[in-house]
């Protein structure tokens, strides 16, 4: 998968989620919870499920969500204390000792992937398991996915699996209209599945 890093190489991490493979098993959510000790009631990744049609003409759409680690992150822009910052490899981090918990980043994030840690009273989110990446491993959600729907790799390396998919397949991102340059790419993303955001909502 090409997650090994050599110091002199430029690395830009990206995630590709093949929704045609996702079976909605929530293994990624569970693996993430365990790996990152995510507290009760909040999530770094989850699988949104939207159902279209009526039986027998019916299908469920699963959309796994996590931080897009955007190229141009709004959260970094608005954070008043620079607690949220971007690493050279693209991962957007929150300094847990610097964050004052004002939640401005959470209000400004178009993907609502940030949460207020109920135990530490600061903001947290998915960091693409940077501790695992730095150790040469893949993020926990990618490793746990039983169908291989989640793909992770270096966009700067044209030979990586992620780069090849991005170069040859039709991919989609969430809310491209905000110009944030999200780095989680989807294959087979359904527009209505993204737009349906409320229980009982009629589109």
């Amino acid at each position: 998968m090409g997650t090994e890093r050599t110091p002199e190489k430029v690395v830009r991490w990206a995630m590709v989620i093949d929704l045609r493979r996702c079976i909605g098993c929530h293994s990624c959510s569970v693996a993430c919870k365990l790996e990152n000790r995510v507290p009760l009631g909040v999530f770094r990744t989850w699988v949104k499920i939207v159902e279209k049609g009526t039986y027998p003409g019916l299908r469920r759409f699963h959309v796994p969500m996590n931080c897009n680690n955007c190229q141009r992150p709004v959260c970094v822009e608005v954070c008043p204390v620079k607690a949220t910052y971007q690493r050279p490899d693209g991962i957007v981090l929150v300094d847990p000792h610097r964050c004052i918990g004002c939640q401005y980043c959470k209000a400004a994030c178009p993907y609502e992937v940030r949460y207020k840690d109920p135990l530490r009273h600061i903001i947290s989110k998915c960091f693409w398991c940077h501790h695992r990446l730095d150790a040469g491993l893949e993020p926990a959600c990618v490793e746990a996915c039983p169908t291989g729907a989640r793909m992770f790799g270096d966009r700067a390396d044209p030979q990586s699996a992620v780069s090849r998919v991005l170069a040859t397949e039709a991919t989609q991102v969430l809310h491209p209209e905000h110009g944030t340059g999200p780095q989680v790419y989807y294959l087979g993303l359904d527009e209505t599945a993204v737009a349906t955001s409320r229980i009982g909502e009629a589109l």
Partner: peptide
Amino acid sequence: VHVGQPLRVWHLFFFLNPRSPIT
């Protein structure tokens, strides 16, 4: 009352981000 870590508000004056309206 709103911020999660009220004792850290001094960060606002020492680690300031000039692009943020909160600053």
